[in-house]
């Protein structure tokens, strides 16, 4: 047990180190220069020497005038102190604050849509595997949903419900006329704005999970243990229950991966619906070459993926006895 977790944690730490290093490298290898970018964006002064002075000042401020290896070391140093740097694009807000402001929207949008679509998709998939009639209706629908280009479905929903019917807003996380406060009015507005992005994510996720579950169930119903129960005259209910609890195992792994990317936000959804989550932020950060914000966003994704995987590793031990064997050290 101890050895198992020791090894797991070591692997996770190593992954974290490598992923964060890549995260640090990627923005710095992009062509372009964030400070110059910022200065041209706010250019008020055309005096070349003044701009050069400002350029030097900001470069020094962001530590971009240091050699790369020094930048890398100071990046790790500040990371250990919980500092993610200052956003170039939203100067002078610290990256941490920018991220903390965006995360609640992400969680609020993605956690329910992923969990609900997972739950409903699995239930419906298992349901579809029961009879030909259900299979012929639910499965094609699921295939259409999951094959739909996500962006297109989002735009379609926004167009139909937001523009044609006009019953849902198509941008923002709450009404532009409001400031965040704790009133029913505000909460209502948040839900109102949340619905369309949620629905689009739910529908696409639902289709994928339903298909996966249907196929897994059909496979499990053909497994030897299902046949044995059938030959002993066990009621269909018990056979299905066993098939379901076996079929759900790979789905749990899938869920882990999905939950991990929560922090990445559904970038496309957030862009389509102008929803202020991390995905939206990431796009803005890349467009503005905001090294620190990009790093911050990716850091959250890395932590999210690793954490979700770790949780699922533990959950797997609980639901699948076969994984417990690995804990004695046979396999990693």
């Amino acid at each position: 047990m101890k050895r198992y977790f020791g090894r797991k944690i070591l692997i996770y730490l190593l992954t974290f180190f490598l992923a964060v290093t890549i995260d640090w490298m990627i923005p710095r290898f992009m062509p372009g220069d964030p400070v110059r970018n910022m200065l041209t964006r706010v250019s008020v002064n055309t005096n070349a020497s003044a701009i050069q002075m400002m350029y030097d000042y900001y470069s020094h401020l962001f530590g971009l005038d240091m050699p790369l290896w020094q930048q890398y070391l100071s990046f790790w140093k500040s990371l250990f102190m919980g500092e993610l740097g200052i956003s170039v694009y939203l100067f002078p807000t610290p990256v941490k604050d920018v991220l903390l402001r965006a995360i609640p929207y992400d969680a609020f949008l993605l956690v329910p849509s992923i969990l609900l679509s997972w739950y409903a998709g699995n239930k419906f998939g298992a349901f579809a595997a029961r009879s030909k009639w259900l299979d012929n209706t639910i499965s094609p629908l699921s295939y259409i949903l999951t094959a739909t280009p996500y962006m297109w479905l989002g735009i379609l929903l926004a167009w139909f419900f937001g523009i044609v019917l006009g019953i849902f807003p198509i941008a923002g996380a709450y009404s532009f006329t409001m400031r965040p406060n704790l009133s029913w009015n505000f909460i209502g507005s948040v839900f109102h704005h949340w619905f369309l992005p949620f629905a689009s994510l739910f529908l696409v996720g639902f289709g994928g999970w339903a298909i996966g579950m249907r196929n897994m169930i059909i496979y499990e119903l053909e497994a030897d243990y299902s046949h044995f129960l059938g030959a002993l005259g066990a009621p269909k209910k018990l056979v299905r229950k066993y098939a379901f609890s076996n079929a759900v195992l790979p789905q749990i792994t899938g869920l882990a991966l999905q939950l991990g990317v929560i922090v990445a936000g559904a970038l496309v959804t957030e862009v389509v619906f102008s929803y202020p989550g991390i995905g939206y932020l990431l796009l803005a950060a890349i467009q503005n070459q905001d090294y620190f914000l990009i790093q911050g966003c990716f850091l959250f994704i890395i932590i999210g993926v690793l954490l979700a995987n770790f949780i699922i590793d533990i959950a797997y031990i609980l639901v699948d006895p076969r994984t417990r064997r690995g804990m004695t050290g046979e396999t990693a």
Partner: peptide
């Protein structure tokens, strides 16, 4: 209808006995 007879009156040790038990139940 056969369900009534299976297990009580007629039973089987299948060829696949090694895989006949649900792997995730005690």
């Amino acid at each position: 209808k056969m369900n009534e007879f299976r297990f009580r009156d007629i039973s089987i040790i299948p060829q696949y006995a090694m895989n006949a038990l649900n792997p995730i139940r005690k």
